[in-house]
Design a protein around this nucleic acid. Structure first.
Lengths: 252, 252
DNA sequence: CCTTGACCTTGACGTAACGTCAACCTCTAC
DNA sequence: GTAGAGGTTGACGTTACGTCAAGGTCAAGG
């Protein structure tokens, strides 16, 4: 009283290939093997298969299923820890969806490619992962709570200040002056002072590597079009970078 | 003014292996190659890399990213269709989490392994996918809405009826009578009549393959411990299967 | 000049769970 | 005898790299 591989596959609602795979990895051996090598499965094997398929539908990996079946691991326990993983995945997905939405809105919104200013973007949790990766776990939390704590008026003031700094940089770059000129260095100083107002960055904390940070930031302005856009793209961003580097080398 | 592979990797926050991979698949070629085979990257290459990494963080696949960069595909469009996929994934995850929770509750709840009756389980959307796969898309919707439309009293009546049928089967199996005896065949008839009351199954629709359905159902009772439990496990389920088969062969 | 160590290169395997040929054998039915 | 249906064992493909392995390149120091 047993079934061939295709028969049992149809009964259980799966494929013969899957059965062979389970045989290969030792998850479910056929109950009998013909002299011709054919695989045959009996009732108990079908029961095992049903259990395997049920757990698989719940998203468990085959090794985890094997552990449940072989080593008498508590099924409830296995499912519970699996549930945690699922919850984390759901969380990650939710945040990713928010990021994608945000990005789409931003790109549709202002026409220019991601031409928001740096920290306007940050506060929108848009660059959350990026900030965390580049400047540490605390950076995002600090700058986020700082931004949230501001009133609408204060936020506007801040934006205006950023805006003015940007336009001043652009006009300076377009005027043809050198990055190490006095005017450019004045702007660089304003820029660094502005940076010092942002919590979570090395410029705000005493003892941080301000010099390296400022130089690296300049490189990023050039490298990343989202930031370069704040300075009129090229060659504005390059001008800012060079000016910041000179300022950092001599004053920090 | 260019960087080595490790330098640009550090700047962009990725690894040299990733860069080599992107080179292999043609996603990002180095701007220059030394006579020794070393890869070097310049500013524009870094910009491209930043864009790639941004899109990757949003979950886009590398082929999709390549399409956006190479063939000037609209980024917003690509992200939008990606968003749909993400939403579907989120949906799937949510339903899977519900299933896992349900399963855990069930297994903790009654101690016995999934020993709920068939349609009590169905109505809990627990076996949604399974019902749909085995009996078609409409089956689940039909039996679900049918169950939801019942009052609490009616549901209880139905459960009692199922319960009584189950216990009658069990006592019949234990009494040692044959599956083709008159009493067993009476039970089989009751069973089929009961099935006819469930919408979405072939037994309820005129012209359905009732015979094949009943026989297959009997096999499933034996094969699947969740159903076998309704008949006291073994040898109860086997008795039911045999009785149903005889009944189906002679009367349907 | 030689060594050391850091950095570079090109393979090539491993990952999760099978789908999908390919080449070849087996059984039943006409 | 010959289809035709169904079985077998490889082996590659899938996603985006991580991780050795074996060996060439380069700058600095003895």
């Amino acid at each position: 009283m047993d079934w061939s591989i295709q028969e049992i596959a149809k009964i259980a609602g799966t494929t013969s290939r899957t059965l062979r795979h389970y045989d290969d990895i030792g998850l479910l051996k056929p109950s009998r093997t013909g002299h011709n090598g054919y695989r045959y499965y009996d009732g108990p094997a079908l029961v095992q298969l049903q259990r395997i398929l049920l757990l698989r539908e719940l998203g468990l990996g085959l090794p985890a299923i094997a552990e449940v079946l072989d080593r008498e691991t508590d099924t409830v326990k296995a499912l519970s820890s699996h549930l945690e993983w699922l919850a984390q995945e759901q969380d990650r997905l939710t945040r990713q969806i928010a990021s994608v939405r945000q990005t789409i809105d931003t790109m549709k919104g202002d026409g220019k490619y991601m031409a928001q200013n740096m920290f306007d973007g940050f506060d929108h949790t848009q660059y959350k992962d990026e900030v965390e990766e580049r400047w540490g776990k605390d950076a995002y939390a600090a700058s986020d709570s700082w931004w949230r704590g501001m009133s609408a008026d204060e936020k506007q003031q801040w934006k205006d200040r950023v805006q003015k700094l940007g336009t001043d940089w652009i006009s300076a770059a377009q005027s043809g002056i050198s990055p190490d000129s006095a005017e450019a260095q004045d702007l660089a100083q304003r820029h660094v002072e502005w940076l010092r107002g942002i919590p979570g960055t090395p410029t705000a904390a005493p003892g941080g590597d301000v010099k390296g940070y400022v130089i690296g930031l300049g490189e990023m302005y050039v490298a990343d079009p989202r930031f370069a856009a704040n300075y009129g793209g090229e060659p504005g961003a390059t001008f800012v970078r060079d000016a910041l580097r000179v300022y950092a080398e001599t004053n920090l």
